[in-house]
Amino acid sequence: MIAETRLSGIVALWKEDKKQYVKRSTFAAYTLLIENHILPVFGETTLVEEQDVQTFVFRKLNEGLSHKTIKDILIVLKMILRFGVKNQMMEYRQIDIKFPTERNNHSIDILSRSHQKQIMEYIQSHFTFKNLGIYICLSAGMRIGEICALTWDDLDVENGIIHVQKTIQRIYIVGESRKHTEVILDTPKTKNSIREIPMTKDLLKMLRPIKKIVNGCFYVLTNEPTPTEPRTYRNYYKQFMQSLGLPSMKFHGLRHSFATRCIESKCDYKTVSVLLGHSNISTTLNLYVHPNLEQKKKCMEQMSRLLR
């Protein structure tokens, strides 16, 4: 006999179990989705039906949530439901959700080549540690949390390698009494994100003299034993772009710009994927590989030539 348990009760037990297996940042992300979206709608129910979830999805779309965010919520909801079924706290129900077709292509922020060149030349003649971080991002495609966590020891000028092995992020903690945020130093996003990135000659030229005089344990962006956090560095970057009179663009656009320049330089896609620390090549292909009309014409010409 299956005991009818409210979803809020199943969530509490699921969280206790899940906490043992996932990173603190992942657990915090799950908790936030549960508190903000899942419990307010399903918390008091003892049986979650497919139609209820489909209605929930349409409501969230109308509220302006992206497909990705809603899919993230559904992943967490389904994990909780599976846990409830496995522990005989609720009945099994097949849930197969449909999303309306997304008609608008989401374009990504990318610097033009001339703007990228302008930024890199400006930093070469206006060196600061925070500016260096922007230069490294454009030269290596690192994420903001990875840059904030970078120490001088991670920059190996002897072998010309950047070792990416940690990240800094601010996570939301939903406690018993209050919600608050904490900054944590952690391993990167996935195991593929722990990687080695070769330095460009220009970056190496900039780093060699500095490496002789800095403390290896200090953080690159501050040149101090304490790091700066992504939120603070984002604000600095925003002011930096304004000071150069450049169009505003998310910090992540620096990573997109690096990847795009690699693809434009005819680097093979697998190598670009590994440099970016993507968990699979399809992420890289979907984001950055969009053949233009010239490439399509060339492809058609090659195909027809083969048939002649």
Rank of each mutant, 00 (worst) to 15 (best):
T5N: 13
L7R: 02
L7S: 02
D17F: 12
D17G: 02
D17C: 02
K18Q: 14
K19A: 14
Q20N: 14
R24N: 12
T26H: 00
T31N: 15
L33S: 10
E35R: 09
N36Y: 03
N36L: 09
H37C: 09
V41G: 06
T45I: 08
T46D: 04
E49M: 06
V53L: 00
Q54L: 00
G64Y: 05
S66A: 06
K68N: 15
T69W: 01
K71G: 05
K71P: 04
I73F: 07
I73L: 10
I75F: 07
I80Q: 06
I80N: 09
V85C: 08
V85N: 07
Q88H: 13
Q88F: 11
M89E: 07
E91H: 11
Q94G: 01
I95T: 06
I97K: 08
K98H: 13
F99N: 03
P100A: 01
T101C: 03
E102A: 13
R103S: 13
N104S: 13
H106E: 15
H106C: 03
L111I: 07
S112F: 10
R113M: 13
K117C: 07
M120W: 03
M120D: 09
I123W: 03
Q124L: 14
H126M: 03
K130H: 04
Y135P: 05
I136A: 04
L138C: 06
I144Y: 12
I147A: 12
L150H: 06
W152T: 06
E158M: 09
N159M: 08
V164M: 09
Q165H: 15
V174K: 01
G175L: 02
S177H: 09
H180R: 11
T187H: 05
P188H: 10
K189C: 10
E196N: 11
E196I: 06
T200Y: 11
K201Y: 04
D202S: 15
D202L: 07
K205G: 05
M206I: 14
F218G: 02
V220S: 08
T222H: 08
N223P: 12
E224T: 14
P230H: 08
R231P: 01
Y233M: 11
G245E: 09
P247V: 04
S248G: 02
M249K: 04
G253I: 05
H256L: 06
S257C: 01
A259M: 01
I263K: 09
E264V: 05
E264I: 08
C267D: 10
C267M: 15
D268P: 02
Y269F: 06
K270P: 03
T271V: 12
V274P: 02
L276C: 04
G277N: 01
H278R: 04
S279M: 01
N280G: 14
I281Y: 03
N286T: 00
Y288P: 00
V289Q: 05
H290G: 01
K297L: 14
M300Y: 13
Q302D: 12
S304F: 15
S304E: 15
S304C: 14
